[in-house]
């Protein structure tokens, strides 16, 4: 009885068996790399906005406080976006004919809101709360980066679960005195290690429960 397979079938079989394993590992490697890459986390990508609002100009050059526009940040989960009236508080008098600002004037006249595109959109099963972070000494720039140097708003960090957990597991390196939370490019004082240790107590940061599921998920 003749052989069914040619001798070379051995090589092919070995190639397929090993190749399948290598391909499997490759897929996992590429995938885990990809989901952490800026392509997926949308870091450093500025969505197209109805008005090219520049934080670099308003924060960096003019020094306007974050809370002038994001008024809910100290009291509620959402930091909030400014109403059209907030833009027009200044722009009813300056840059009144700028083409760039035409959508703002139209919004004020018609009552239709500006449709800003969300830059930091978390999944709906994450219940992030701005106020608690502000009151526990986590600064704006810790998560939002050098906003005062962004001509167009973009994500500075991935905001993945792993990224959040890296701080929830060990918050100390990211803490600062609450009075400095809104400061940009804050320079920690010499004795910052001691200050951070005491902040855990002073601000009542419960490190034991900070990685419990219910803290972020309901």
């Amino acid at each position: 009885m003749p052989q069914i397979f040619h001798r070379s079938a051995n090589g092919i079989a070995r190639f397929v068996l090993w190749g399948a394993q290598v391909a499997f590992l490759l897929v996992i490697l590429v995938w885990t790399g990809l989901v952490r890459s800026e392509f997926f986390t949308e870091v450093a990508r500025a969505p197209r906005q109805p008005v090219p609002f520049s934080h670099r100009h308003h924060v960096g050059e003019l020094g306007i406080d974050c809370r002038y526009c994001h008024g809910g940040v100290e009291t509620s989960a959402s930091a909030g976006l400014p109403a059209t009236e907030v833009c027009m508080t200044c722009h009813s008098q300056i840059w009144t004919n700028a083409d760039m600002l035409a959508p703002v004037r139209e919004s004020l006249a018609s009552g239709e809101p500006l449709r800003w595109q969300r830059v930091h959109g978390l999944p709906d099963f994450v219940y992030f709360n701005h106020a608690i972070h502000i009151h526990k000494g986590v600064a704006c720039e810790t998560c939002h980066g050098d906003v005062d140097d962004m001509p167009l708003m973009m994500r500075a960090h991935s905001l993945t679960m792993g990224w959040c957990l890296s701080c929830h597991r060990d918050p100390e390196p990211n803490l600062r005195p609450p009075a400095e939370v809104f400061a940009m490019h804050w320079k920690p004082p010499e004795d910052i290690e001691r200050v951070r240790k005491s902040l855990i107590d002073v601000l009542g940061i419960d490190t034991a429960t900070m990685t419990d599921c219910y803290v972020c998920h309901r």
Binding site: A77, S78, G80, L81, R118, G121, P123, D124, F125
Partner: peptide
């Protein structure tokens, strides 16, 4: 659709 549940985010259109 757990990431985009049938409820509004603050200020959602």
């Amino acid at each position: 659709k757990m990431a985009d549940q049938p409820r509004y985010d603050p200020l959602e259109a």
